[in-house]
């Protein structure tokens, strides 16, 4: 370490330490846990259940990563981060990565010195309104008061959308989802806007979900994905390819139930390479040779995770849509394992 780390009291030192420390993968292995940054509570993506344990779509990806590294899906420390402090927490080394419904944008990727290593959910910004307003399209929202979480890209999209369409609105900025929900239910704002996926979760958690509708307009591209610190390529590879393995597993028909069986060897070379019965892809990542087997065994493939946490059979009730596999008309696509 540089001697400048003496400046420990300043946040600067936290940043400097993050950079000058050994690779994140080594740190994680030494610690025995992955510090995974998740949201403070977005139903379906990451929230605490009645036993106080984290569950949700993003949580499953953290678990898969821990399983790939430690063979133990529970070796995760969940760091709850708000939309405001997530990047600071990441660059200060408090979290090893974010699976925190974070939109991949140019300035975040380039200017904030973070790296986005994949897209686990293709999202877009939507609007939710009470049914009794009689609004059926976002173009009828002239003059409405809009509740919005500050510090998110939705704030910028909202301003752009209303300006481009020549409409005015009153923003009511709020700090977090729970406050926004309270204000929305009391009628302090007409419209609630955020990513459509989170909107479905918020709607499901309102007192009377059927009294609200989500408008058909999707006004922005919100590719959500894991985020790591800039410049640690080994750690980037581990995160990227663990996620890719879950997507590829769905494409190849590898599931939680049959992964142990298939790992013994099949006549499909793609499956064999990924699950380690042919070649040694995992050891190139400095992981155990059965890393992806462990990941899939812990959480199931991408489709299984989706259906279990946010799919149509859950209260969230999201359709696969853009997040279907590329072979089924969606955008989820994994580069080949070879």
């Amino acid at each position: 370490m540089k001697k400048s780390v003496f400046l420990g009291t300043l946040a600067v030192a936290g940043l400097a330490a993050g950079i000058s420390a050994a690779g994140t993968l080594d740190d994680v292995k030494a610690r025995g846990k992955v510090n995974c940054g998740v949201t403070e509570g977005t139903l379906g993506f990451s929230s605490r259940n009645s036993e106080g344990k984290h569950e949700g779509f993003d949580v499953e990806f953290c678990r898969a990563l821990a399983a790939a590294i430690f063979d133990d899906a529970d070796a995760v420390e969940y760091i709850e981060l708000s939309s405001k402090n997530r990047f600071t927490a990441l660059s200060a080394g408090q979290a090893d990565l974010l699976y925190r419904t974070t939109t991949w944008t140019f300035s975040r990727d380039v200017d904030l010195k973070t790296s986005f290593v994949g897209i686990n959910y293709y999202d877009g910004q939507g609007f939710m309104v009470p049914k009794d307003l009689g609004v059926t399209s976002a173009t009828e929202l002239e003059g409405a008061t809009v509740c919005i979480e500050t510090g998110t890209t939705t704030e910028l999209n909202l301003a752009d959308y209303f300006r481009v369409n020549g409409m005015s609105y009153e923003p009511l900025p709020v700090g977090g989802t729970s406050e926004a929900k309270a204000l929305y239910e009391e009628g302090a704002c007409d419209v609630y806007t955020t990513d459509a996926s989170a909107l479905a979760g918020v709607r499901a958690s309102l007192k009377d979900p059927s009294a609200y509708i989500i408008l058909p307009e999707i006004v922005s591209k919100e590719p959500l994905g894991p985020t790591v610190r800039h410049g640690d390529n080994d750690w980037e590879d581990v995160v990227r390819w663990t996620q890719n393995a879950l997507v590829a597993a769905e494409e190849l028909g590898v599931t939680q139930a049959n992964v142990a069986e298939l790992a013994k060897g099949t006549d499909n070379p793609s499956i064999n390479r990924m699950l380690g019965s042919e070649g040694s892809l995992c050891s190139m990542l400095n992981l155990e040779s059965d890393c992806f087997v462990q990941a899939i065994a812990a959480t199931g493939n991408y489709g299984e995770i989706f259906e279990r946490t946010i799919g149509e059979s859950t209260p969230i009730g999201l359709a696969r849509g853009l997040n279907a596999l590329w072979t089924e008309g969606g955008l989820q696509y994994s580069p080949p394992f070879r």
């Binding site: 300043l10 400097a16 660059s91 910028l156 301003a159 209303f162 609105y169 923003p171």
Partner: peptide
């Protein structure tokens, strides 16, 4: 100086030109 050097090493030198950029958010 230490703060400035470390910020520069992080790729975030102390600059105030962001104040001239478009804000693109609304204030009620």
């Amino acid at each position: 100086r230490n703060a400035a050097v470390n910020l520069a090493a992080l790729g975030k030198p102390l600059r105030f030109d962001f104040l001239g950029d478009t804000a693109s958010y609304d204030i009620n």
